[in-house]
């Protein structure tokens, strides 16, 4: 699609959408959101980029083979679930660490967050490895 408006708008939208997707990812910790919806938003950002500049460019902007994202996400998921095994807990038990951040308060960090990031990566990877090859046809 050759549209100047779309291309200019996309240049602004891509970072905004990606930022929004990260917001959704982190918000999903306690409220609606999470890795799945965040991943879909991120993937749709790259699909939009693909509309404006072509699928090849979108793949280039992504910077990695979508399949590798799936693999990395799955590995991260296994890792976040297996971390509990090292602590002699059942698989997928959430491990938590409380980090005091000056000026913010206590920050609860845990393996479920890593798992959410893993979901995010897998969703982005799966969606784009389906959409981008289709768009290239």
């Amino acid at each position: 699609m050759n549209s100047l408006i779309l291309r200019v708008a996309t240049r602004f939208m891509l970072p905004l959408l990606l930022l929004f997707s990260v917001f959704l990812l982190l918000r999903g910790h306690n409220e609606p959101g999470g890795g799945f919806s965040g991943g879909l938003v991120a993937a749709s950002a790259f699909v939009l980029y693909g509309f404006a500049f072509g699928a090849a460019e979108a793949g280039h902007a992504l910077g990695a083979d979508p399949r590798r994202l799936i693999g990395a996400g799955l590995l991260l998921a296994v890792g976040s679930g297996s971390a509990a095994l090292l602590a002699e807990q059942p698989l997928m038990t959430g491990l938590w660490a409380v980090v005091a951040v000056p000026g913010f308060g206590d920050l609860h960090l845990g393996t479920p967050l890593l798992f959410d990031v893993a979901v995010y990566l897998v969703v982005v990877g799966v969606t784009l490895s389906i959409v981008l090859p289709l768009a290239e046809e």
């Binding site: 590798r68 799936i70 693999g71 590995l75 296994v78 698989l91």
Partner: peptide, 17 residues
């Protein structure tokens, strides 16, 4: 028996090419 095949599959995806 669940973790090993999943890890293998994920690692193979990383080694796609």
């Amino acid at each position: 028996p669940l973790v090993i095949p999943l890890t293998t599959a994920a690692a193979s995806l990383l080694a796609w090419r």
